[in-house]
């Protein structure tokens, strides 16, 4: 494929008088792990919600695999190959881990209310195939023991894993991770970076990750894009971004302090 996998140009969105994202350019190449970072309220999640088509940008275009998806509908996005997780976990809370991973394969299955209701030929095979795929993913993430547990009874960390599994099981080309470290301790954060890298290699993924934990993205990402008040203030390799005075100022308010201490 020529050109970037995801290419965002001049993305702008306002909420009332507030410009949440202001003329943002961002691209993710195939196989890359890109971090979108910035202080709280910088507009990172808003960018995700534009890509997921939950928000309609006022200006700009979002292209995925060369196709303009700026006016696509939110439920079509996963079909194009973009799956996501959420900052505060959006699972189907009354369902088991397995059922959540079956929901993750919603678009891969044929469906239809009459086909389901009459159990037409193929329904059983579809379910069996999806269940097998879900089981493989649960095993890969070490969730086999929790397969039949209702997700609302799982600890937060496991819920985040189930959500990651639900996104991965849809076989995406691009994975959007919104604050994967939220609620995790230092050791878990290290494990998470390894896991994301492993998943990237295994499933041939590109990853766009929103974070405010600097040390996490420094170790994980190939490239960083820094947002502040909806504008991109820096972009480049983690090492370069780390020493950028504009970034240091945005994070700490004063240039003298070392960013690594965050």
């Amino acid at each position: 494929m020529t050109g970037p996998l995801l290419e965002i140009t001049d993305l702008t969105i306002r909420f009332g008088g507030l410009v949440a994202v202001d003329g943002l350019d961002l691209r993710v190449n195939a196989g890359e792990i890109v971090g979108l970072i910035g202080p709280n309220g910088a507009g990172k999640t808003t960018v995700f919600n534009c890509i997921s088509r939950f928000y309609q940008p006022d200006r700009g275009t979002i292209r995925f695999k060369g196709r303009d998806i700026t006016s696509s509908r939110s439920h079509e996005i996963i079909r194009f190959g973009i799956a996501r997780t959420f900052q505060n976990v959006e699972l189907c809370r009354s369902m088991t881990a397995l059922e959540n991973l079956l929901v993750g394969q919603h678009v891969a299955m044929r469906g239809g209310v009459i086909r389901d209701g009459l159990r037409l030929p193929g329904v059983g095979a579809d379910e069996a195939r999806a269940t097998q795929r879900a089981d493989e993913m649960l095993e890969l993430l070490g969730l086999t023991r929790d397969r039949d547990r209702v997700v609302s009874t799982l600890p937060f960390g496991l819920q985040k894993l189930v959500e990651l599994g639900r996104a991965l099981v849809s076989d995406p080309a691009l994975l959007l991770l919104d604050e994967p470290t939220a609620g995790a301790d230092k050791q878990e954060i290290q494990g998470l970076a390894d896991l994301i890298r492993r998943m990237r290699d295994r499933f041939d993924l590109s990853v766009l990750v929103v974070e405010h934990d600097m040390s996490f993205v420094m170790g994980l990402c190939d490239r960083l894009s820094v947002l502040d008040f909806g504008r991109r203030i820096a972009e480049g390799a983690p090492a370069d971004v780390r020493n950028d005075p504009a970034v240091i100022e945005a994070y700490l308010g004063e240039p003298e302090v070392e960013v690594t201490e965050v």
Binding site: L91, R93, M95, G111, G112
Partner: peptide, 19 residues
């Protein structure tokens, strides 16, 4: 498949749309 989509909507419309 249809019933799972129904319950997904009940549990979280956001998650359902994203899936």
């Amino acid at each position: 498949h249809t019933g799972r989509a129904f319950v997904a909507i009940r549990d979280s419309e956001i998650a359902a749309r994203a899936m």
